[in-house]
Design a protein around this nucleic acid. Structure first.
Length: 113
DNA sequence: GTAGTGACTGGGC
DNA sequence: AGCCCAGCCACTA
């Protein structure tokens, strides 16, 4: 990674995802909307694919709008995402986040930037 | 420039 | 409940 980087949407996603506190989760659409992509939920997911190579991007805290662990297949193991979340206090049942609304983390409200 | 793809979302069958 | 389709935007070939 060199210093010469254009405004990558990936980096924007990474910054937001890094701010997600432990035991919390968020969804793609929210991050996209926060970044101004509004309908760029796919872009967020796409960015997470690259984020997978970074050390400080807790992609396991990002789930789809239903609280489903859609991206677990991209982890080292399909169970890693669930284990990481459960380790942080998030209950996962059938690849889905329990109390999703309770654990939900909204950058627009929590981060208040 | 066109076409295909994707860790999404919502609606329809 | 499950599957298919269309819209969405960025990336790659």
């Amino acid at each position: 990674m060199t210093k010469k980087e254009k405004p990558n949407y990936f980096d924007l996603v990474y910054q937001v995802v890094r701010e997600i506190p432990p035991g919390r989760v968020t969804n793609y659409g929210t991050i996209a909307h926060y970044l101004g992509l509004k309908s760029g939920a796919r872009m967020v997911g796409y960015a997470m694919n690259a984020a997978h190579t970074l050390p400080d991007v807790p992609a396991h805290r990002v789930v789809n709008a239903s609280g489903l662990l859609t991206g677990k297949h991209h982890f080292a193991t399909p169970t890693l995402m669930q284990e990481l979340l459960e380790k942080e206090g998030v209950k996962i049942v059938k690849d889905k986040v329990q109390d999703f609304e309770k654990c939900f983390w909204d950058p627009d409200k929590e981060l208040l930037i």
